[in-house]
Simulated assay, not measured.
Amino acid sequence: MAKSARLAEVAKLAGVSPGLVSRLLNEDPTLKIRPETKSRVMAAIEMLQYTPDAAARALRSSQTGLLGFALHHVTDPIYAQMVDSAEAAASAAGYSLLLLNASELVSEPATFRRLVRGRRVDGLLIQGGYADDTTGLNDARSMPTVLFNSDALPGFRTVRLDDTAAADLATSHLVQLGHTRIAFVGAEGSSSDRRYDGYLSAMTRAGLAPHPLIAGGWDASPAREVTERYLASGGSATALVVVSTTSALGVHAGVIASGRPIPEQMSVVSIHDTWFAEHLSPGLTVAATPLGELGRRAVEILVDQIRSPQQGEVVINDPAPVLLRRASSAHPAGRQTPAADH
């Protein structure tokens, strides 16, 4: 690949100073330049095919107007409301969102360094709470950054939902229905760990023995496979609390494929709500979390970080998680199943 021309080479060819070329390219309103000189500079730019370095220009102006929004599963429908709210908050603050793949950024240090050190965005929102490997985030400390869904991390500003309360609510709902054998289908990372803690809290408060975590992952396919294996091996639970609605899509399918009707022989409740949950057959009961509020607050906190950096954790517990009762949860087998709430 041919080496890109430098601004100094443009200036030399046009017979002017580099500063004049820079001011011309940046449309400096105070610049006074003769038409023939301007034509000479533009001809040199065309001849050398010079392209201004966007990163360098951003460094000089200290603004790109962009906020990086890095998600681990960009296409996951759970995040639709969060992204919409984040975009609205960014627009209100005079920014645009640039969607990024958090997994690729963390696993490709060179790409991450170019993004951060090149100042191609004014700030970064990075999703945590999954594998929670923070070694790839060291470069992010050099620019305004907010981690969302992660635990508190020294050197960073973090914001997350009250995952523990959501899982406690989901589990308590099943306890109130009369279930005593309730299992938790979780995944890797601190988001799942916090939800498992909520499950444990509700089980302990009810005087029930918790089951070991069933590791189903964050995607539907592995969650279905794990559910089918669990039931085929004689799993005794009559109800399942699932770490997310995307995972619950697989759990729901796995239970039905195993020959156990929902909710007659197995109740299923998940954390989060999304558009497809009510359209499953039967509809999925969820502990809905304020994902839209998370998107809005994360952007607002990042804009504050750009103006005045600080550390510390923000936990969004207002509004609190809300149980949306649908047909996937009912009394255990042998008792009358109440109608689903709408």
Rank of each mutant, 00 (worst) to 15 (best):
A277N: 01
T337E: 13
A220D: 15
A215Y: 07
D139P: 08
V314T: 14
S270Y: 04
Y230S: 12
L100E: 10
A320N: 06
R113P: 06
S191Y: 02
G198D: 09
S103A: 15
V314C: 05
A14Q: 08
A58I: 12
S192G: 13
S328A: 07
A288S: 05
L161G: 03
E9V: 07
D133T: 02
Q49Y: 04
M266E: 03
Y50L: 12
A170N: 13
A223S: 12
E293Q: 04
G178I: 07
E87S: 10
P210F: 03
A239E: 06
S233D: 13
A80N: 11
L24V: 03
S258V: 11
T111M: 09
P154W: 02
P319A: 15
S150P: 09
Y95P: 12
E225S: 10
R113H: 14
D162K: 06
P309D: 08
G207W: 06
P109M: 02
Y196E: 14
L284Q: 03
T238A: 07
V16C: 14
M266T: 05
R205Y: 01
V185N: 00
T30Q: 13
E108R: 07
A56E: 00
R141W: 08
S191D: 08
S17E: 03
D197A: 15
S103Y: 15
L13Y: 01
L7H: 00
F148P: 02
M1D: 03
S308K: 08
E108A: 08
G254C: 05
S308A: 10
V315F: 01
S328V: 05
E36G: 10
V83S: 13
R114M: 15
R296F: 02
G68F: 07
E104H: 12
D168F: 14
A131H: 14
D132Q: 01
E9T: 09
A320G: 09
H331S: 05
A167R: 04
